[in-house]
Nucleic acid binder design. Sequence first.
DNA 1: ACCTGGCCGTGACAAATGTCCCGGGTGCCT
DNA 2: AGGCACCCGGGACATTTGTCACGGCCAGGT
Lengths: 201, 201
Amino acid sequence: MIRLLLAEDQGMMRGALALLLGMEHDIEVVAQVGRGDEIVDAALVARPDVALLDIELPGRSGLDAAADLRDEVPDCRVLILTTFGRPGYLRRAMEAGAAGFLVKDGPVEDLAEAVRQVLRGETVIDPALAAAALSAGPNPLTGRERDALAASVDGATIADIAASLHLSESTVRNYLSSAIGKTGTRNRMEAVRAARQQGWL
Amino acid sequence: MIRLLLAEDQGMMRGALALLLGMEHDIEVVAQVGRGDEIVDAALVARPDVALLDIELPGRSGLDAAADLRDEVPDCRVLILTTFGRPGYLRRAMEAGAAGFLVKDGPVEDLAEAVRQVLRGETVIDPALAAAALSAGPNPLTGRERDALAASVDGATIADIAASLHLSESTVRNYLSSAIGKTGTRNRMEAVRAARQQGWL
DNA sequence: ACCTGGCCGTGACAAATGTCCCGGGTGCCT
DNA sequence: AGGCACCCGGGACATTTGTCACGGCCAGGT
């Protein structure tokens, strides 16, 4: 029996996946969580063989949780399941030690098979996505540029960002200008969008 | 047997829901589509008793499709299933003649029961959401203010918006300024965010 | 010891944005 | 006929944003 942990914030999706995977004769869902910061605790208790993690989770990113699992529950293989096949996500997932990366498009039938593959030690990745990730190159943004961009979502003003990062307004504008340049965009909003698209952020 | 049409863009979610609902003894999934502009055609062919529609769909909004169905396939009851329980969405769903409104949180078990309820002529709505929709009041934005806001997502400049709406830049700025005032925000981005949050847009 | 790159800041400037006036036109309701 | 709301535009103005040039600090690599 493959012991599976399932982390997904949308209740209906989580329930549906749990039911479907539980119907497989060789899979048993031993833990379900809806928040990223509950993953490690649940894994320590339930001792799953495979963790199926969404990326966008409240509390803690599934990618960060994957890195945590590698340290704290090394026997557990990680399979990332996400809505967005962003190159940067895939790259970060691999760096965090994930064994597989699936997007929520594509048929459900693949899911159980992917779980079995990662347990056999194989790596499962959509080939097209892998190519995109390689061709896109790594994240060119520095840490602070990322911070500034991330803080500027939802229409925060320069003053807001400066306050939230404890920086001067001039500095923030320099970082943002730099990020706009690196993303090849015309303003904050486009830069945020572009960075999101790539999975930087 | 309840004949069901399922419209949902995320392949895995669609597949999972189809399998789960198909396992119910009294439900048969007679059509699955992944785009909003395929809903009416599919319904005309499959003649479902109930249509389970996501809102955010490529091609055409599930809310618009619900209005279409009321006109073209009036026997078919509409049940809206959405990620975001936004007051404006609920309001628009009701105006489009939907018989029910579910959010994708909450247990899958409710789903089949909700389908049966709408078929019996009952209306299914989360009470808390209904209260929020009533207390929020109707959409205060005029048609053009909505257009201008919608066109300003993703960092379009005033010039871009003016071009895409065939308006002068002055006009666009006036509309945006008005929308910013009505939403009680400080700039475009906040206004867009606030309007989205409410389900205006 | 030097160079590089990230980090943090200032000042000045041009461009974009948001606000407040104003005008005219239309259609709808009373 | 008047009032009202929406549509469309112009002009002036203050504010915000984005760019550029320029400092200094610190860590790492050669």
